[in-house]
């Protein structure tokens, strides 16, 4: 049984059906990516998994348990952590406070301190800026903070929504490198990207979304070589 299982979910914004029956599965320790054009429903899928939206139909199971009826904060506390589109760090809080909030639901204060230290080793730029308001960070630094803050929760599954968005090409490389490293430490990753080549390159498996439906899925390499995917997303 997969760690995260989404079965035939339908999600509506008022009367607009944004997801028309999405099913996907993510195995423990995998990197799975969702690619697709603007408005395909990638963010909506992640928002449904993390409990920000509730599917009208279908089910979402994590580690065998249904997530139906749980609030977003309960799902986060259960180990499914979502880094939303646009990073959404708390700009009026300090970098340190942002990191502490990442560990909001944890009670093991000593381990939290160790984890924070690890984050600061992984992202040394954040150490220099610990006392600064997070709103003063550059785009790349904010992405580091968003990732570090999410990792502070010790997630089992990390949902990442376009982590490379708006970053310079050199930083994009770094972001993907970091994703690989996080995954090697045992975190399962569901990655949403518009940068399909990079995402499919790093992922074990991928799903291609179009207007709220999955039109294609398979190993990352295969999708990368698929003629249809090439024409649609790789130019």
């Amino acid at each position: 049984m997969a760690l995260l299982e989404v079965a035939d979910i339908h999600v509506f914004y008022d009367k607009i059906e944004a997801l028309k029956g999405i099913s996907l599965a993510v195995e423990e320790r995998e990197i799975v990516t969702l690619v697709g054009g603007n408005g395909a429903g990638k963010s909506t899928t992640l928002r449904a998994i993390s409990g920000l939206l509730h599917p009208r139909q279908g089910s979402i199971r994590f580690a065998g348990r249904s997530l139906a009826g749980l609030g977003a904060h309960e799902i986060a506390a259960g180990g499914v952590v979502h880094i939303p589109e646009g990073r959404r760090i708390f700009g009026r809080l300090t970098v340190n406070e942002n990191l502490e909030l990442g560990a909001f639901t944890r009670r093991d204060r000593r381990d939290v301190a160790t984890d924070k230290e690890q984050m600061l080793v992984l992202f040394p730029r954040l150490r220099e800026r610990l006392k600064q308001l997070a709103g003063t960070l550059s785009g790349g630094e904010q992405q580091m903070l968003a990732a570090a803050r999410a990792l502070m929760a010790r997630p089992r599954v990390l949902l990442m929504d376009e982590p490379s968005m708006g970053l310079a090409p050199m930083l994009v490389e770094q972001v993907f490198e970091t994703i690989g490293r996080i995954n090697q430490q045992g975190v399962t990753i569901l990655l949403v990207e518009q940068n399909a080549p990079m995402a499919l390159g790093i992922a074990n498996r991928g799903y291609v979304l179009e207007s709220g439906r999955i039109v294609l899925d398979g190993p990352g390499r295969d999708l990368l070589d698929d003629e249809r995917v090439r024409r649609a997303y790789l130019g």
Binding site: A72, H73, A76, R88, F90, R92, L93, L101
Partner: peptide, 24 residues
Amino acid sequence: TRMGTAMRAVAEDGEAAALMGIDV
């Protein structure tokens, strides 16, 4: 305090706060 910080986080972005496990 923890709750005070959570309150400032919710004031800034309630949805992002919920994703941190904060019960809004």
